[in-house]
Amino acid sequence: MQASIQIPATPELDYLLRLGDTCLISGQRLGEWCGHGPILEEDIALSNMALDLIGQSRALLTLAGQKSGKGFDEDQLAFLRDEGAYRNPTLAELPRGDFAFTILRNLVLSTWLKLIWERLRDSRDAELAAIAGKALKEARYHQQHAADWAVRLGDGTEESRRRCEAALAQIAPYLPELFEDDTVDAAAEASGLGPAWSSLREPWLAEMGEVLGEAGLALPESTKFRSTGKVGRHSEHMGYLLAEMQYLQRAYPGGAW
């Protein structure tokens, strides 16, 4: 079996991995819909978006690998880290749930990603700014796709509405993690690498409010619970996700096809 790699902990690397792992793990979860979509067209749409996200994570993990000073490549970073070295917020790793949950989580994350990509176009890191310019187009589409469905489902039948409300109730406790700063944000803001996550909160609330308002839905009140995925303390779901995602590279090191 292929051994795990150890990543140096620098604020810059953490900032990139938080974003890259959000894309990677969201992509992995969305990819689970392949072959299981409610209709063929939606099956393809979700798989397309999963591939967009994986593509974004590849670019970010490649950049993170260059900055690690250890010569790691995207594959090593994606497949050979231990659970505690992944930096995605917990929301990204929650099981895919039903279609309503997937759509509303996509709405939350794609809106958030779109806003951070917009800001990252001005990063002092030219490579990161270029990645952001490309990813922004994809995120805008992901957001529109999720928003369309959120309105259809929220303003749809009694059952679709009930499922949307249940999904939002499940998502809500994990939202503060997307908007609370720590030393990683402070360093990124100071160096001009990227925005502190707290600065995304207001525009995110405004855009979400618009869509949810049209859908006849509302975000539940926040709770005192704080998820901690971005500092490497993940939910019980993460281990299973990684076991499936990493199996091939761990069992057949360097395997390619």
Binding site: L40, E41, A45, N48
Partner: peptide, 20 residues
């Protein structure tokens, strides 16, 4: 061709299915 509930959804699905 494809099945869709309305025009907006049809355009979105056409993009996803036929312009990948």
């Amino acid at each position: 061709s494809l099945h869709a509930a309305d025009a907006r959804m049809a355009v979105q699905m056409a993009r996803d299915v036929y312009t990948r």
